[in-house]
């Protein structure tokens, strides 16, 4: 029998008996980051493609929620910091190797852009809106004129944001479950899927709804493929990763992951969307809600299970 004990009574809070340094804040923040990245990505994409009128839901309507979601996400991130008064230190340096630094700066850039985007589309919701202030009015005019340029910037930033939400975890070698390059694309796909689903809610036309249902379906397909790929990668890897994947294959996270994330969050909504594409009457919000729920759970479960997995030595 092998017996391995920490005999000094070590019980560092948040570390022992296993890591619990990140709670709900980080997964929520990552979810909102991914979701907003998805929305902004499609908004930018269809602006650049010149399809603003056809897909007004994506370009003009859905992004209205983005600034609010980003602020909630940032608030969650802030709440998670344990040395809050020093948070401004994030903006005293750019650390290219630190995903946290990337995220902080990307959010710093993308949040104002999302506000501008909201501002220049405000008439969509308040048709009688007039900018009273001369400066604001001028600014508005400037951005409206350069909207495509702005969209390009937004496209790039939203991609960075989307990938970052996945890379944040996968940068941690120390946690075998996170130590896979698939998390980046997976979280990106999940964020885009959540974004697409949200756009469905805001879509004006049936045409637009169908497009985003199709996009969503495709993204879900990619996600499922990535998940299978991820597990195959784990099983073929080191002992620690085999054990980490065990958390989902018979281990304590098996049920939450396969039921909440894969079944309810991917397979069922995909099925509903297929039905919808086949012109069956499905309440619009149902697959959307499921996709959003699945996307949220994915982050929660990966965050918690990842903290549970560790090197054995």
């Amino acid at each position: 029998m092998r017996e391995e004990l920490i005999t000094s009574g070590r019980m560092n809070a948040h570390i022992d008996p296993h890591l619990e340094i990140w709670h709900w804040h980080i997964p929520l923040y990552l979810f909102l980051g991914g979701l907003t990245a998805g929305i902004l990505f499609f908004a930018a994409l269809y602006t650049i493609l010149g399809k603003e009128e056809r897909y007004a839901g994506a370009v003009r309507r859905a992004p209205v929620v983005v600034p609010f979601l980003l602020i909630i996400g940032l608030a969650a991130l802030f709440l998670d910091l344990r040395h809050k008064l020093y948070f401004w230190q994030l903006y005293t340096t750019i650390k290219l190797e630190s995903p946290m630094s990337w995220g902080a700066w990307t959010l710093m850039a993308i949040t104002p852009i999302s506000v501008i985007w909201l501002a220049i589309h405000i008439q969509e919701f308040f048709p009688k809106w007039e900018w009273k202030n001369i400066i604001l009015k001028d600014l508005n005019g400037f951005f409206v004129k350069n909207k495509v340029g702005l969209a390009w910037v937004m496209l790039v930033l939203s991609l960075i944001l989307g990938i970052y939400t996945g890379i944040l975890f996968s940068a941690f070698n120390a946690r075998p479950l996170w130590n896979t390059s698939i998390l980046g694309p997976l979280f990106l796909a999940s964020g885009l899927s959540a974004g697409a689903a949200t756009i469905i809610l805001f879509a004006r036309s049936h045409d637009e709804r169908l497009l985003f249902a199709r996009i969503d379906l495709m993204l879900i397909g990619i996600e499922l493929f990535l998940i299978i790929h991820m597990f195959m990668g784990f099983r073929a890897s080191t002992q620690v990763q085999i054990e980490a994947s065990g958390l989902f294959l018979g281990g304590p996270y098996t049920a939450p992951f396969w039921i909440f994330v894969v079944m309810l969050g991917m397979v069922v909504p995909a099925f509903l969307e297929i039905l919808e594409l086949r012109h069956k009457k499905i309440p619009v919000y149902l697959p959307v809600a499921l996709v959003l729920f699945g996307s949220l759970m994915l982050r929660f479960i990966i965050a918690y299970a990842g903290q549970f997995s560790r090197w054995l030595y």
Binding site: H14, H83, Q89, A171
Partner: peptide, 15 residues
């Protein structure tokens, strides 16, 4: 300079 984000804690394989 530390903001208490916990990233370094998660990153250390030795806890």
């Amino acid at each position: 300079k530390c903001i208490g984000c916990g990233a370094c804690i998660a990153s250390c394989p030795y806890d």
